[in-house]
């Protein structure tokens, strides 16, 4: 998957959990959990959906690499099946 494809999937998935999330309005290094008020359940939901869509397992140890939109897209591109 290309970075653009992954970015679309990521934004789409985030919007399913936070409907008014707009990645274009925040810097790429913004803290996802804080900016979009994701609690631990939201985050698990996000991870679960992303994991299915890119076809790769995301472990709890990887959560630190999903801290910002830029980090997340980088991680997902690297791990996409």
């Amino acid at each position: 998957m290309t970075t653009e494809e992954v970015h679309v999937i990521f934004e789409q998935t985030l919007k399913e959990i936070v409907p008014d999330a707009d990645l274009s309005s925040v810097p790429g290094d913004t803290d996802l959990r804080e900016t979009f008020e994701l609690d631990s359940l939201d985050f698990v939901e996000l991870v679960e959906r992303l994991s299915k869509r890119i076809g790769a397992r995301i472990d709890e140890e990887d959560y630190d690499q999903l801290r910002t939109p830029d980090d997340a897209v980088r991680f997902l591109v690297a791990h996409a099946a």
Partner: peptide
């Protein structure tokens, strides 16, 4: 998509089903 037409500050937070 549905979310794009949602209210700017929804009191309810809709989301799609878990896969």
């Amino acid at each position: 998509d549905a979310s794009a037409t949602g209210p700017a500050l929804p009191a309810k937070r809709p989301s799609v089903p878990t896969a």
